[in-house]
Design a protein around this nucleic acid. Structure first.
Lengths: 162, 162
DNA sequence: CAAATATATGTAGTTAACTACATATATTGC
DNA sequence: GCAATATATGTAGTTAACTACATATATTTG
């Protein structure tokens, strides 16, 4: 019975636990890059990696790809532009659009980062490959939420209560 | 092979994905409380629930219990004090300590919240009880990290690389 | 084809955690 | 029993995401 109370507390505090976990992983990620002498912040990864794969994208499509609100992407792009890792140009067809791409410096950085990724991937796999695989769990939860939101699911139970 | 690239990207972007998930869950949590007409923020949960269980605690022990840095706890306590959900008094034995406890209003709120918790727990269970259970995965990852940090694990692979 | 609507980008301000530093009190050890 | 160290609390400033609003350009529709 006591276990149920603890479980309930864990379920209810799930967002704070996810946040803390994310924070810890990011901090160690930063230290790993530092240990390799690479000036790179983990938060840059989604933007740079997407540009690495897709070569050139507009701000909004990039935001959608990485799952961020566009102002977050803009502020990351500002940092990356200051670091001369990316550059942008106007889309000649649709002049509202700003097309973003890696600079040579950016491409070079990403290729020097590959051995670091290997390390991060192995270490991450080590901590997430437990009985219930965290990565798979996240994928599954994201898919489940996509079908029907947390709120919508809660509403079903709310109706039963009244 | 392409799948491996995607997996790698997911592993590398794990902290941002965890953060986003935490954010989504928190927002819907707030809406659920609102739907029940309860003026309550999900971020208050760990503090209030701990005080509910343990009745009275100092600021630091409370912070440790919920896993927050103490300044975060202090700022939550300020809000909760403003809402008159908690009160604090000096510890007569160790006068450095500030002992925090629920007010009558706080206790009343927590008991009116029990039906809402039921709903949240059910909805959370629904989204997390996939093949790889997210809650269990988080518990396992936390335990694994506790044994040996992400950084320490990465260091093992870093040595092999050089 | 002009008005209404939609889309793309950008800015300002918010949020909820954090670290670093400061101060007061308690505990320990010479 | 006093000096050094440790612990408890508090303040200030940072971070990395967000929402809401503003503006410019493109697309759709009557």
């Amino acid at each position: 019975m006591e276990q149920n109370v603890i479980d309930a507390s864990g379920l209810l505090a799930i967002s704070t636990r996810l946040q803390r976990l994310s924070d810890q992983i990011r901090k160690d990620g930063l230290l790993i890059y530092k240990a390799f002498g690479i000036d790179f912040q983990p938060k840059w990864f989604p933007v740079l990696y997407t540009l690495y794969k897709k070569s050139t994208m507009s701000v909004v499509s990039l935001s959608e790809e990485i799952g961020y609100a566009h102002p977050s992407t803009i502020s990351l792009l500002k940092e990356l532009e200051k670091e001369k890792l990316i550059r942008s140009k106007k889309d000649k067809v649709d002049t509202r659009k700003r097309l973003v791409e890696l600079t040579e410096k950016g491409k070079t950085l990403l290729s020097t980062m590959e051995p670091v990724w290997e390390v991060i991937i192995k270490a991450t796999a080590e901590i997430t490959n437990t009985e219930n695989n965290l990565m798979k769990a996240i994928n599954e939860v994201e898919a489940t939420l996509h079908e029907k939101s947390f709120l919508q699911r809660a509403e079903v139970y709310m109706k039963k209560e009244f």
